[in-house]
Amino acid sequence: MINIIWMFLFAVGFVFAAINGTMEEVNAAIFDGAKEAVAICIGLISVLVFWLGLMKIAQNAGLLDGLAKLARPLAKKIFPEVPSDHPAMGYILSNMIANLFGLGNAATPMGIQAMKQLKELNDNKDEASRSMVTLLAINTSSLTLIPTTVIAIRIQYDSASPTEIVSTTIIATMISTISAILIDRYFYRRKVKRGDRK
């Protein structure tokens, strides 16, 4: 569906440019955009490689395992249907820790694996389980301590103070994560009251 929407917007833009005679500006914008995208990607790669390297060092040093152990009791309260020793819990914790450090790209594969494991726990039903909905809500809001990707973009565009957004990011993502959990619990309790618990 997203591809159809993008193609529609692309086609409308071309038709509009052809009618207004601004095709030359559209062509220039396409090439400038492509050039800028490559420059941003190269800038992001360097920062992401640095942080992923630090994450690997932290993992080998046992820091991530330590953080996961600290977060396990909280995760158990948020995901009560998931057994503590199930692989899904490990993937969920890894996903949350990666998001905590602003490494969304590293968190995505772990989030996908967590969803697969949660689907197996849900007897491979097409309907999402409570835990799957909760994981999606938390993953979307994702509490972040270090917004690595945003800092990298700010550095790329020569920001005078690329890390000044850290405190506001912590506050904003803390509010969004708490809100996501509260909204998730509200709708779950409504569902339970209707007698539709699954």
Rank of each mutant, 00 (worst) to 15 (best):
R130M: 10
T144D: 01
Q113I: 03
L121H: 00
D126C: 07
N124W: 07
L136V: 15
M115K: 03
D123W: 04
V133K: 11
N124H: 09
S141Y: 10
I138T: 11
K125D: 14
I112G: 07
L145Q: 01
P147L: 14
N124D: 15
P147Y: 12
I146C: 07
L136P: 09
L143F: 15
S142A: 15
S131T: 03
M132H: 06
E120W: 02
T149Y: 05
M132L: 09
S131Q: 06
T144K: 10
T144Y: 04
V133I: 15
N122E: 04
N122M: 03
V133G: 11
G111Y: 02
N124R: 01
K116C: 01
N139R: 12
D123G: 03
K125W: 09
S142M: 10
S131D: 06
L143I: 12
E127H: 00
D126G: 10
M132G: 08
P147H: 13
S141D: 14
A128Y: 01
T134D: 13
I138G: 09
T140H: 15
I112Q: 10
L135M: 10
S129K: 02
Q117H: 05
I138E: 14
V133M: 15
L118R: 00
S131E: 06
Q113P: 03
Q117D: 05
D123A: 08
E127N: 06
L143R: 14
L136W: 11
L135R: 13
M110G: 00
V133R: 12
E127W: 04
N122F: 02
L143P: 07
K116N: 06
Q113R: 11
T148P: 00
A137V: 13
E120A: 12
M115G: 02
I112R: 10
M132S: 11
T148M: 03
T149I: 09
Q113E: 08
K119S: 06
K119Q: 09
K119F: 00
